[in-house]
Design a protein around this nucleic acid. Structure first.
Lengths: 221, 221
DNA sequence: GTCTATAATTTGATAGAC
DNA sequence: GTCTATCAAATTATAGAC
């Protein structure tokens, strides 16, 4: 078996990377719009100005395309998180702020991919995919768990240093991702009346760090 | 046209309320499991130990059933919120705590219905339903807006009294509902390792009120 | 590498027996 | 009021021409 985080191809063997990427983008957009079940292969082909023959040249099934979007999206988030986690110049609460800010921004600027990734977090979808493509689903879950662990570690460090309340880091992670992932549900770049990306990301990051913070200052030694 | 919040029947005329309720419960459970698009009428019928003939005796279409679940769920939340909003013995921040606690609890104890309601908040689903059943969709949106307004008012009151940070109440409402609605994504009553309903609801309500709170105490007069 | 059939299935909805 | 039978449409996936 391949290592859990090695690149793993969900495309048919030997296809070009460029055509592949085009299909992936179009699929992300289509899945984003209507969800996995309601999106047909024709929808994706239409978005490309092509017919399904093209799609099936690259992918064996609709599920494979979906999982490929999922994995790409999770990988992108994880790559952005890594340098934040290891920035030794920033305190745990500052790093949590940075991580939340990054995640919020990604939800707004890479809407299609991140929304599809969130669909993939839903238990029923994953459970069904498990039976058909356990390898890819396990890869995705592995990436997701590493990502969540990163946030939980920051919470734990902030707790240990006395800045955060005495919370269970795993449980504390839930409202954080809830608040952040939910952005996908309401943020609409076309709607002028909404605040800008930076203002929203800032408010969310403040809200999250503040929510975890102890109210009283820690007594000095 | 009927008043926006009057009871509005999505069933076929003249059917019994009891059979209707049974179908509604089964439908909520099925939609919860697999989502609107992936759920077939046969799935719902199976859950009842019946066949589709029975379903179509009560409802004209799958969309009508879905919208009926949506409205029922939103009504339930709104009815629970009302007494909290008007409890003059509690401060705005205490009432926001109560409201968040109630919402969190509802997400965990009425899983099927509330999850379906959340699916209904997704723009693509609503947009498509709009074209086919504008009356029911508008009813649902009206209920949802009233519910959100209740939360926004509490935030505004807390801000006015100096307890909460200087936030835009509308924007502040987003991470609140995000954190709370997301519970549906991960909470699993069958999983023993998770904290109990009360412990989770409490942590979420604390997190939310804390996230909005000013860090420094307000200077006295 | 992309297209045009076309096969095989699933599914929403109806009609009519009981 | 519920069931069986069935139609009509949509959709996944394949085969084979170009």
């Amino acid at each position: 078996m391949t290592s859990r985080f090695e690149p793993m191809s969900l495309t048919r063997p030997g296809v070009s990377d460029k055509g592949n990427q085009q299909i992936l983008e179009a699929a992300a957009e289509a899945f984003n719009r209507r969800g996995f079940a309601a999106t047909s292969i024709d929808d994706i082909a239409d978005a490309l100005g092509a017919t399904k023959g093209r799609i099936y040249h690259y992918y064996r099934s609709k599920l494979d395309i979906f999982l490929d979007v999922l994995v790409a999206s999770m990988r992108d988030l994880l790559e952005k998180l890594q340098p934040i986690l290891t920035d030794s110049e920033r305190s745990p609460e500052q790093r949590l702020y940075d991580a939340a800010y990054m995640h919020a921004t990604t939800m707004m600027t890479r809407r299609s991919f991140s929304r599809v990734a969130i669909q993939g977090l839903e238990a029923p979808v994953l459970a069904e995919a498990q039976t058909k493509r356990a390898d890819a689903v396990n890869l995705f879950i592995g990436l997701r768990d590493r990502y969540e662990d990163g946030f939980a570690d920051l919470v734990e460090q902030g707790r240990a240093s006395g800045v955060f309340r005495d919370v269970d880091p795993r449980l504390a992670t839930k409202p954080i991702f809830g608040a952040l992932n939910w952005i996908n549900m309401w943020y609409d770049p076309a709607q002028e009346s909404q605040a800008g990306v930076a203002a929203i990301a800032e408010e969310f990051a403040v809200f999250i760090v503040n929510g975890l913070r102890r109210r009283e200052p820690v007594p000095g030694p």
